[in-house]
Amino acid sequence: MAKNRSAVHLTIFGGCLFLFPLLARWISFLEHYVDVMVFVGIYSLVAVGLCLLMGYAGQISLGHASFFGLGAYVSGIITAKYGVNPWFCILLGMVVSGGVAFIIGAPSLRLRGHYLAMATLAFCIIITIIFNESIAFTGGPDGLAFIPGISIMGYALDSVVKYYFFVWSVVLMVLLLCLNIIQSRVGRALRSIHGSELAASAVGVNVAKYKIYVFVLSAVVASVAGSLYAHYLNFINPASFDLFVSIKLLIMIILGGIYSLWGAILGAVLITFLSYEWLHYFGEAEVMVYGAIVLIIVIFLPGGVVSIPEKVRSLCRGSKLKVEG
């Protein structure tokens, strides 16, 4: 039943995504939104991975912008400077990020709560400094420009709409993978760790193994997103992968609804559109309005945006009960 339902969700979601650019072709105002939606897709990828780690396994990470950045820089440096095939670089980026996540994760994931937050935060700052300082490779704070685009078997993804379909198919694939993981043994193990690590290990769950597993998985997904980002924007700089991006990702999954992968995607839609498009109308008061929106959602929608339908339903049901009573 649960599997069927998520299949239905996925189909509807995929359908809407497919229709959006077609709609945008008719309504010229939406045309620019396709461009924004590409970035939404890229951030959704990172957010889905992070949601698996935080919402399901209960481990906080403030370092995911760095895995995002590692993917982007591996792709960017190797394609721009050595002319290697981008597909190979995406794979290489996944290996590098996964490897780094494994090395960092092994000692870090023994830490709890704020200590884990600090360890990942420190990692994030260190990586940003390395991006900034190794100017010979990364171009330093000015960034790395002229990163080549990507093509599928000779078919160049050279327009916004083409890239849109490419990115969102990757998102749907990753989403499908993660939904499957959640409904499998691994997902149950992760939830048990979130509930209580002690109880989980008492019933025979290898806590350390599963924590590392999901940490590495989310880092690899973030790395793919980073590569897609680099090949789309054709430019990367350290500021796109610093601590503030990590915090932005955190805000995405929490405002979206931390206990649901759909929430992560909703959060990515909300925050990306807010910060890249809608808040522009507030001029310099943008930062203030952004802060206020974050506060309002945390206060009035503790379950995140994803909980709106449920909240509406329970409100309707509540009033019906009263009438009957």
């Binding site: 805000i251 802060g291 206020a292 506060l295 945390v298």
Partner: peptide, 9 residues
């Protein structure tokens, strides 16, 4: 998250 929002504000 509330304090992060407040800090932006």
């Amino acid at each position: 998250i509330a304090t992060i929002g407040a800090s932006f504000f």
